[in-house]
């Protein structure tokens, strides 16, 4: 693992180089929104943002993806599928929480079942992390085994030390490769500065997520009815969640399309017969909570939440899943 100090100018040069050799995606402004998009000009790469509106999952698990297409070739029916160019892809400015979420995706798409579409994109991508110095009030990564400067899942981590200097910490070989031959050795002072920044950032994260260990026992509790009442069953929290991976398949003409789906939607569980086991809002909301904090943990040993706080910030009616999970045991004892 190497550590380096690079200047803002160096970073710009690196970005310029990467634009030529690879597909470069980085956060940029679109109106008031911060979204990852292909970089056309290194000047447009945006550093001063708490987090992008949409998580980076969209580049590995696109909102809409053609899996295959039926074709007629020489009078015979065959299938063909689209493959993205096998060019290196650099995703620049990924926050540690989002990087961690991809490890959860790996558990799902690179576990028992290998999803070639996902893996293809995963293999060619390099994740350049940007440490979080200014977490928001809605962030709660610390309580979920992550942190504003966590390195898990990243290939390289950049920390803005202020004064136009950046500490670059190589994590994997493919990450280090990007910064080869630039910058200078880091000194003790810079390492201390980085530690200070990390501690300061950690202090800013006050929200904690503490699901009760016996969450399963509340399954039938009327609590879910009460807390889900204001939920409007839209897909904002699930679509903007870096760890939500539910999808559906449909045919559009001859194309088989995979697209994001959300457990908040009533038709999510609707069956051909018309039966819908999760017709009621409370059952759908409960599903979301349990999938994250119970089922995923049971299956993969970890809570499927990285504490990025997007669902809290973007919910149209301010449903606070952290509050709901934390409160659930207290509420039980009260009744």
């Amino acid at each position: 693992m190497t550590e380096k100090i690079v200047s803002k100018e160096d970073l710009k040069k690196i970005l310029e180089g990467l634009m030529k050799t690879s597909e470069l995606l980085a956060p940029g402004k679109e109106g008031d929104l911060v979204l990852f998009k292909p970089v056309k000009n290194p000047e447009e790469v945006f550093f001063a943002y708490p987090n992008s509106l949409k998580p980076v999952k969209e580049f590995f698990f696109p909102p809409r993806e053609e899996l295959f297409k039926h074709e007629i070739r020489e009078g015979k029916v065959g299938l063909s599928s689209e493959h993205q160019e096998n060019r290196k892809r650099v995703i620049w400015g990924v926050r540690p929480c989002d990087a961690k979420s991809l490890l959860m995706f790996d558990k799902m798409f690179d576990g028992e079942y290998k999803d070639s579409y996902y893996l293809e994109k995963r293999a060619k991508s390099v994740l350049v992390g940007l440490a979080c110095n200014e977490p928001l009030d809605s962030c709660f990564c610390l309580s979920l085994n992550a942190g504003p400067h966590a390195k898990e899942g990243l290939d390289v981590l950049i920390t803005d030390l202020g004064d136009d200097s950046y500490l670059v910490e190589g994590i994997t070989a493919k990450g280090e490769e990007l910064f080869q031959g630039c910058g200078k050795e880091s000194g003790e002072g810079e390492r201390t500065r980085k530690k200070e920044l990390e501690e300061a950032a950690k202090k800013k994260i006050r929200k904690t997520c503490q699901p009760p260990p016996d969450l399963e026992s509340f399954f039938e509790d009327p609590y879910w009815e009460k807390v889900s009442r204001k939920c409007i069953s839209c897909g904002v929290c699930t679509y903007l969640c870096p760890t939500c991976f539910c999808f559906d398949l449909s045919y559009e003409g001859r194309d088989c399309i995979r697209f994001w789906d959300s457990c908040s939607f009533s038709p999510f569980t609707k069956m051909t017969s018309g039966e819908n086991p999760r017709r009621e809002k409370k059952t759908r909301y409960r599903q979301r909570v349990y999938h994250k904090f119970s089922y995923f943990k049971k299956n993969f040993g970890e809570i499927a939440c990285v504490g990025c706080g997007r669902c809290l910030r973007e919910c149209p009616v301010k449903v606070d899943i952290v509050e709901i999970v934390n409160q659930c045991s207290k509420d039980k004892t009260k009744d």
């Binding site: 597909e23 995606l25 292909p38 969209e58 580049f59 696109p62 909102p63 809409r64 993806e65 295959f68 074709e71 070739r73 015979k76 065959g78 299938l79 063909s80 599928s81 689209e82 493959h83 993205q84 160019e85 060019r87 892809r89 559009e252």
Partner: peptide, 18 residues
């Protein structure tokens, strides 16, 4: 035509023809 999510160019691969 449908826009692709990321700007990455794509190529088509035949999966099966029998």
């Amino acid at each position: 035509p449908v826009d692709k999510c990321s700007g990455a160019p794509v190529k088509r691969k035949h999966l099966k023809n029998d």
